[in-house]
């Protein structure tokens, strides 16, 4: 089961990487970046997975017996932080993309290539 998670997250990672490398539209690149981030978050959670594990919440006094069967909560905490970072990055990049569109009149990342001649 864990293998499936890891495999799918790595494939998400590569899909995202492919998108970042080949797409020209900035919004598409940002979406691909988001896919990559999702993939990596999934990878982190999958690293903490224990087979047939239970939720890592202490519900009653006896739950402490099942300590070893609990799924690792630390990666889940890391992932929460990472999701928020991804949120911030995406929001900021989109704002930048709007300004980019306003300046270059196009959302292609190749548009800023013809800048020579503007500034020596």
């Amino acid at each position: 089961m864990a293998q499936l998670f890891i495999l799918s997250s790595i494939s998400l990672l590569f899909i995202g990487l492919f998108g970042v490398l080949t797409r020209k539209n900035i919004v598409k690149i940002l979406i691909a970046l988001n896919i990559m981030e999702t993939g990596i978050n999934l990878l982190l959670v999958a690293f903490g997975y224990v087979e047939n594990g239970i939720v890592p919440i202490l519900t009653s006094n006896e739950s402490i017996m099942n300590l070893t069967k609990m799924v690792d909560p630390v990666p889940q905490a890391l992932v929460l932080t990472s999701i928020v970072i991804g949120l911030g990055t995406t929001a900021f990049s989109l704002a930048l993309a709007i300004r980019y569109r306003y300046n270059h009149n196009s959302l292609s990342i190749r548009a800023s290539e013809e800048e020579e001649g503007v500034n020596i």
Partner: peptide, 17 residues
């Protein structure tokens, strides 16, 4: 301006990756 937004965006994408 043109140069800044392009540079910042590319830096952001690279750094995120």
């Amino acid at each position: 301006d043109r140069l800044s937004t392009g540079a910042a965006l590319k830096y952001l994408i690279l750094s995120s990756t």
